[in-house]
Nucleic acid binder design. Sequence first.
DNA 1: GGTAATACTGTCCATTTGGACAGTATGCAC
DNA 2: GTGCATACTGTCCAAATGGACAGTATTACC
Lengths: 207, 207
Amino acid sequence: MHSLTDQQQAIRDFIEREVTAGRPCPSQREIAGHFGFASKTAAACHVRALVKKGVLAVDAGKARSLQLVSLARANRRAAVEIPLFGSIPAGFGRDREEEADECIPVTIDSIGFKPTRNTFALRVSGDSMMGKHILDGDIVVLEHGPEPRPGQVVAALIDRKSTLKTFVVKNGKPFLKAENPKYPDLIPSDELMIQGVVRAVLRRLEK
Amino acid sequence: MHSLTDQQQAIRDFIEREVTAGRPCPSQREIAGHFGFASKTAAACHVRALVKKGVLAVDAGKARSLQLVSLARANRRAAVEIPLFGSIPAGFGRDREEEADECIPVTIDSIGFKPTRNTFALRVSGDSMMGKHILDGDIVVLEHGPEPRPGQVVAALIDRKSTLKTFVVKNGKPFLKAENPKYPDLIPSDELMIQGVVRAVLRRLEK
DNA sequence: GGTAATACTGTCCATTTGGACAGTATGCAC
DNA sequence: GTGCATACTGTCCAAATGGACAGTATTACC
């Protein structure tokens, strides 16, 4: 693979900036204008070189049809928005997303699985799960629906507030083990509504 | 906000499919062609309605300049690929990305800051940082360059292997505090190459 | 010295494209 | 009935656009 010249790299970067910013793909004349070329042929020539080197694709004859090859790959790993709740609401209707405080975009690769409609995120407050190395301020990504397996961390609804608990089985019976001293240590799991199973943890550290 | 008609929704979806697939934004005539309209004015009319309803933006006069408003928001949160190393190499040259084991796409929101060229990820092995609630298998996102502040977790190069340590200041002198019993507790920080400061933690839990 | 790639200027042209306008038909609210 | 949004067909046009071609200069490589 040939490497790009500085000028070619600059033009590639310009196209990437425009496209990733959500603006329409620049035309040859717009590229020339941005770089101060008097002739648009200069831009066309560079575009041709970028196509030849495989970093750019063009639909011949189509206006604004430049497609960055590396970006096309990134698109396949597109971010999916999942709703982030401060606390989980009781119902799980279709209006779920609108009830969310906000949405966080995650990529499939970063959480290790493809989010579904039953995927949501929860902002952790308090040190209730420090024993499981989940800290105050962390964001946990959960999946609603699947039966938890022993040892997994789940979100349960207590007093209209969701709390993280560890799912355990004792004497063949399922319990929720509270890691928070404010709640009893073991709660029969069928007395509580389990909202979801924790599938990923996201921690942002201070700058 | 007016809701979209079925036809308008279909046209919006078509534009979204094309754009997210990495293909150039469809022209009015291409939209008409896809839906079997004999006249491209039909497409233009729908586009105008979508703009009026606020779901679509157009740069007047520019070819293929349709921009989905919801997508523009997602684009600002676009995924950025950051290199993920099993172990950090000694140098930080331009070939950094090629030396990486793989890349993980992350979104700005999910790690809380915009990744730069000095951002990289590291797969944690061992329980050396369990005291800091960073576990075996976690992925830490680091930034190379900035001076660490006391209490922050840094990656340091020891025996050509990078290890996570806590940056502390004792008696006015900077030290790296090892949370791993295999290494001495305090190491003068200037004896080691600090590769980066941990800025985010990513944990994928088993299914 | 010759060849090729890069890096432009400048011009001409066919095609693509968006915009405007005229017209038809349907359904819905008032 | 009137007005309005929707949902089209069909036509004309000016501007935007990509493509091809002619030409110049520089640099690197053989």
